[in-house]
C-alpha cells in the first residue's frame, strides 16, 4: 500500500454572491499518494481549480470551505489557523498557476520574488536567498541564471516565466506541488519543455504533484491517478490506465469520445449533448443526468454515491449500484448516438 500524503474528504466550497450560494465544489474526495501525480480533470465550471485553491485556502473573499476534511500527513489542515496555513503555503505545499504572464509581480525582480519564499520559510538572509535563487533558476533550466535573477518578469518569455514560477514553488522543497493548468497558456513545444521539467524534478525531489487540467492528453501522459470532475463533483476516480482503457462514468466515456485525437484518425466525433448545468440550478439527481443518454428516473431523482469496485476505483453512477437492474457495462454512446450526432 502506498503512503498517502494528502487526503481530501467530502470537500465542499461555496461562493456567497448577491444571487445566492454557488456550490462550486460539492463533495469532492480523493487522495494523493506520496511521490505520485494525481490529475484533476474537468471542463470549465467543473470546480477543479476551486478544489486546488480550497486545499491551500487561497479562495477569493466571498469563497469559503463549508465542509469536509483536508488531511495533510494525517492532520486536518482545515482546522489550521491562518498563521499555521502560511507555514504550509510555499513551504510544504506549493502552487503554480495557469498564466505565467500575470502570475509574477511586475515590479519586483525574479530574484526578489524567489528569495521571498526562502527568507520567509527558511530564515535565510537576503544574500543567502539570492544565491539560492540562482541555484534554483539553474535547477529549472534557465540559461545564465546570474543575469536572469536581476531581471524583471517583462524581460522573460512565457515559458521562462513558468520556469521561474516553478523555481519559486520548489524553493523550500515542498512535499506537494499543486499545478493549476500550468501549460495551458503555453505553445506545444514550450509545454513539452515544462511538462518534461516537472516530471524530471518530481523524480529527483520525490514530491507529489496535483495536476489540474482540462487536457486529457496531458493527463494520460503525466498522471498516475485521475479524478474526473463534473459540476463540482468527482464522478470517477481511478488509476490512469484503467480510466483510459475502461472508462466507466458516462461523462468520462463521452469526454473521451468527443476528443479529436492527434494520434489517430477518427471518422466522426461523438459529442455530449447539451451543456454544463448552471451553478444556480443544479439538477437534484445525478448532475450529469440531463446530458446522459442512459439516464433513468432514478438518475434524475437521486444523486448517486461514489461506488468503489474494491480496487480503489470509484465511480458516481447508478449503473454500478448493486441494485441496478440493467446490464453493468453499457456503452452509452453507441452507434445510434452517432447517427443523431
Amino acid at each position: 500500500m502506498e503512503e498517502t500524503i494528502l487526503d481530501v474528504r467530502g470537500l465542499r466550497t461555496s461562493f456567497f454572491t448577491d444571487e445566492g450560494e454557488v456550490k462550486a465544489v460539492d463533495g469532492v474526495s480523493f487522495s494523493v499518494p506520496k511521490g505520485k501525480t494525481i490529475g484533476i480533470v474537468g471542463e470549465s465550471g467543473s470546480g477543479k481549480s476551486i478544489t486546488s485553491l480550497s486545499i491551500l485556502r487561497l479562495l477569493a473573499e466571498n469563497g469559503k470551505v463549508v465542509d469536509g476534511e483536508v488531511l495533510f500527513k494525517g492532520e486536518n489542515i482545515l482546522d489550521y489557523s491562518e498563521k499555521q496555513m502560511r507555514g504550509l503555503r510555499g513551504n510544504k505545499i506549493s502552487m503554480i498557476f495557469q498564466e505565467p504572464m500575470t502570475s509574477l509581480n511586475p515590479v519586483f525582480t525574479v530574484g526578489q520574488q524567489i528569495s521571498e519564499s526562502l527568507t520567509t520559510h527558511q530564515g535565510m538572509n537576503k544574500k543567502q536567498a539570492m544565491a539560492k535563487s540562482v541555484d534554483l533558476l539553474k535547477l529549472v533550466g534557465i540559461p545564465s541564471p546570474e543575469k536572469r535573477v536581476t531581471q524583471y518578469p517583462y524581460e522573460l518569455s512565457g515559458g521562462m516565466r513558468q520556469r521561474v514560477m516553478i523555481a519559486m514553488a520548489l524553493a523550500c522543497n515542498p512535499e506537494i506541488l499543486v499545478a493549476d493548468e500550468p501549460t495551458t497558456a503555453l505553445d506545444v513545444t514550450i509545454q513539452a519543455q515544462i511538462l518534461g521539467l516537472i516530471k524530471d524534478l518530481q523524480n529527483r525531489l520525490g514530491m507529489s504533484v496535483i495536476f489540474i487540467t482540462h487536457d486529457l492528453g496531458v493527463v494520460a501522459e503525466t498522471c498516475d491517478y485521475v479524478a474526473v470532475m463534473y459540476a463540482g463533483q468527482v464522478v470517477e476516480y481511478s488509476d490512469v490506465r484503467t480510466l483510459f482503457r475502461r472508462p466507466r462514468h458516462p461523462y468520462t466515456i463521452g469526454l473521451l469520445k468527443s476528443l479529436p485525437r492527434p494520434d489517430a484518425d477518427q471518422e466522426k466525433l461523438v459529442p455530449i449533448h447539451g451543456m454544463v448545468p448552471s451553478p444556480f440550478k443544479m439538477p437534484t439527481g445525478c448532475r450529469f443526468a440531463p446530458r446522459c443518454p442512459a439516464a433513468t428516473d432514478l438518475c434524475r431523482e437521486k444523486l448517486p454515491d461514489l461506488f468503489d469496485d474494491g480496487e480503489g476505483n470509484q465511480v458516481r453512477c447508478w449503473i454500478y449500484d448493486e441494485e441496478w437492474p440493467g446490464p453493468k457495462e453499457v456503452d452509452v454512446f453507441g452507434e445510434e448516438r452517432i447517427a443523431k450526432g
Binding site: 506545444v188 509545454q191 494520460a220
Partner: peptide
C-alpha cells in the same frame, strides 16, 4: 507532432 501529449497512457 512529437511534443503533443497523447490521450493514451499505454
Amino acid at each position: 507532432l512529437s511534443a503533443i501529449p497523447v490521450p493514451d497512457p499505454d
